[in-house]
């Protein structure tokens, strides 16, 4: 029972990160109808910016903020310089271009920083607090929950309650009509990319300290899990991404804890396949199944 509680809490903590990363995928999917396969590499690039800023200033938090800012900028640049010019007639085109971006970003990071693991410190202790002999959450886990909670809440508020959120939703649902109503659809698209990329950078900052460290490929497996989470929830549904993230986090934690960590990549793929076979639109889908 103790083990189950521990695995559940640990799974939720990882799941929160997957939720944030899946949310970033959903934001771009909704705005641009592109599954951003480059999101892992982009997030790692932002994390390297944090690494450099923290090394130069000695402050984790300055690095943390720098990663979020770098994410915003990188998302906007990827949209304006690359994705805007891709012919979306075939849904495969942006996917191929995104995969090309992955190679490019990882190669550049390798050249600049080398491909060894860099230490990525956590800002709070990662040792679990024990209550009555039961290992529960660590202060870092609480930080992860709080951060993801604030980001999800803030995004929900922006989209539901603000004028810019209304413009972004309208531009995503009906670009042509939105332009007729005076909405700068191109600008909203860039803003969507920037926001999503920043959320992705945040997820990288949260998850990398819990793994081996910073490395150009540090987010590859996280991307697979988060992509699965987004598909489980339905690529069109932000609440679905959050629920999907938590589900995938729990699943991986249970599989790793009860069956061995070797099986976790397999478990993710089985879940992905099962959802695609049984409910290809995702559990929270409201529209027809996607083609990618």
């Amino acid at each position: 029972m103790d083990r189950f509680v521990f695995l559940t809490l640990d799974g939720l903590s990882r799941g929160a990160v997957y939720a944030a990363f899946a949310l970033a995928l959903v934001l771009i999917w909704r705005a641009a109808r592109v599954v951003n396969f480059a999101q892992g590499a982009m997030a790692v690039a932002a994390a390297y910016v944090a690494y450099s800023v923290s090394a130069a200033t000695g402050s984790y938090w300055l690095g943390f903020l720098a990663a979020l800012a770098a994410g915003l900028l990188l998302g906007a640049v990827v949209d304006r310089v690359v994705m805007r010019h891709v012919d979306h007639a075939s849904p495969l085109n942006p996917v191929i271009v995104a995969l090309g971006l992955v190679l490019l970003i990882q190669a550049v990071l390798g050249m600049v920083y080398g491909s060894e693991f860099r230490p990525a410190p956590a800002p709070f202790s990662r040792s679990a607090l024990t209550v009555g002999g039961l290992a529960l959450l660590s202060p870092y886990d609480l930080f992860v929950f709080a951060t993801v909670g604030v980001v999800v809440g803030a995004l929900a508020w922006v989209f539901a309650r603000t004028a810019v959120g209304l413009r972004m939703r309208a531009a995503a649902f009906a670009p042509e009509v939105s332009r007729l109503l005076g909405v700068n659809v191109g600008g909203m698209l860039t803003l969507g990319w920037a926001l999503a990329s920043s959320v992705g950078a945040l997820a990288a900052m949260l998850v990398i300290p819990t793994e081996l460290g910073l490395h150009p490929h540090a987010m590859d497996l996280v991307f697979v899990s988060a992509f699965t989470a987004a598909v489980v929830g339905g690529l069109d549904s932000p609440p679905g991404a959050v629920v999907g993230g938590l589900v995938v986090g729990l699943l991986l934690s249970y599989v790793s804890g009860y069956a061995g960590s070797d099986l976790t990549p397999l478990a993710v793929l089985v879940l992905l396949l099962a959802v695609l076979l049984v409910r290809p639109g995702g559990l929270f889908a409201t529209v027809a199944a996607r083609r990618v």
């Binding site: 004028a163 209304l166 413009r167 939703r169 309208a170 649902f173 009906a174 042509e176 009509v177 939105s178 007729l180 109503l181 005076g182 909405v183």
Partner: peptide, 24 residues
């Protein structure tokens, strides 16, 4: 311009559709 098919955004509420018309 009210386009062919009227361009009501189905995913938005009536109030959101209307407010969108005045955001600019």
């Amino acid at each position: 311009h009210v386009p062919e098919g009227r361009g009501v955004i189905g995913e938005l509420t009536v109030d959101e559709n209307l407010r969108l018309g005045g955001l600019w």
